[in-house]
């Protein structure tokens, strides 16, 4: 933390609480990270694109021209309208065109992005928590716990995430009764993608925990007999979070693509509750008859979203890397 004014030095004997200075927001604006952000046009542009898309997706029910999954709002006469052109029967025009049922593709894309983002964010949160906890345990406890966790992580890291997610999904299909499968798909996807990505967090956190473990503040905490889990969560965890945020950001893009791939393969979200991947899967059928827009706009949204989040992740990695300063 940088010092602001010399006269804010606290008088002796007062506990170090020099907080009557800038409000939290202003302090965040002045931090190193914010400076790095303001000096990187790529990061600012990506953040703008990503935030716009995330905002539009979250607010989809409010800003979408129609609810694409309410049959009452669909008009079959308006099917297959080309983007930007007026429909020959009703004269209505659709910015992104419409599908054979007369569904507005812009609304479908916004709702689809909502599902994609939900699955992406939830699975990243799940794998981050799972991986960080296992990594902390492996690094701090060591011994057999470490050997088992890291060996599983090694094996898992050598298999591609999509394969593991497919396997988890397939097994769950066999265990869950067919009637409940459609409802369970969302949760299942989150678990499958989350479980297929935890190893990277565990490996990174274990590495930083091994370093932190030897430092004096951890020894001090040990001396006053704080329990192991308190030391891990209150003392070590905040100091190993930097790399975790970087991995989580890049993994958000990967998780969105992974979800889209699974849905594209037909093992993800059903067409009644489509994500961007499902929309692409559906749209593929119309490619051969020249109705390119049904596929193009979901695909464009997916690529832009993934690219923007990836670029933010790249920037964050460089900004948080002390060696590059």
């Amino acid at each position: 933390m940088r010092s602001h004014e010399p006269e804010t030095a606290p008088p002796e004997n007062v506990s170090p609480a020099p907080e009557p200075r800038l409000p939290a927001l202003a302090r965040a604006w002045d931090s190193d990270l914010a400076h790095a952000f303001r000096s990187s046009p790529v990061a600012m542009l990506s953040a703008l694109i990503a935030l716009t898309m995330i905002g539009a997706a979250v607010l989809a029910p409010l800003i979408a021209p129609q609810n694409p999954f309410n049959p009452a709002e669909l008009n079959l006469m308006e099917g297959m309208t080309r983007p930007g052109q007026a429909n020959e029967f009703t004269g209505r025009s659709f910015l992104f065109g419409s599908d054979p049922q007369g569904r507005d593709m812009l609304s479908a894309v916004l709702y689809g992005a909502r599902v994609s983002l939900l699955v992406g964010a939830a699975s990243v949160a799940f794998s981050a928590v799972f991986g960080v906890v296992l990594g902390l345990m492996a690094g701090y406890l060591g011994g057999r716990v470490e050997a088992i966790i890291m060996r599983i992580a090694d094996i898992q890291l050598s298999f591609p995430a999509i394969l593991i997610a497919l396997l988890i999904f397939g097994v769950a299909r066999g265990v869950i009764p067919p009637a409940q499968q459609e409802d369970a798909t969302l949760i299942l996807l989150i678990l499958a993608i989350g479980l297929s990505n935890w190893a990277q967090y565990a490996r990174t956190v274990r590495g930083s925990t091994l370093i932190e473990k030897g430092k004096e503040y951890v020894q001090a905490a040990r001396v006053i007999r704080r329990p192991a889990f308190v030391i891990m969560l209150r003392h070590i965890l905040p100091n190993v979070m930097g790399p975790v945020t970087v991995i989580a950001t890049i993994n958000l893009a990967l998780a969105i693509i992974e979800e889209a791939t699974l849905s594209f393969l037909g093992v993800g979200m059903p067409p009644t509750q489509p994500s961007l991947g499902t929309l692409i899967r559906v749209g593929q059928q119309f490619l051969f008859s020249g109705e390119w827009w049904i596929l193009f706009f979901p695909a464009l949204m997916l690529v832009l979203l993934a690219l923007a989040i990836n670029l933010i992740g790249d920037w964050l990695r460089d900004a948080l890397n002390p060696r590059l300063k």
């Binding site: 893009a253 693509i257 791939t261 593929q284 390119w292 596929l295 997916l302 690529v303 993934a306 990836n310």
Partner: peptide, 14 residues
């Protein structure tokens, strides 16, 4: 690198 595989395939098909 940022393009999902299936989109590359679909693009080629198109």
């Amino acid at each position: 690198v940022s393009l999902p595989t299936f989109l590359i395939g679909i693009g080629l098909i198109y």
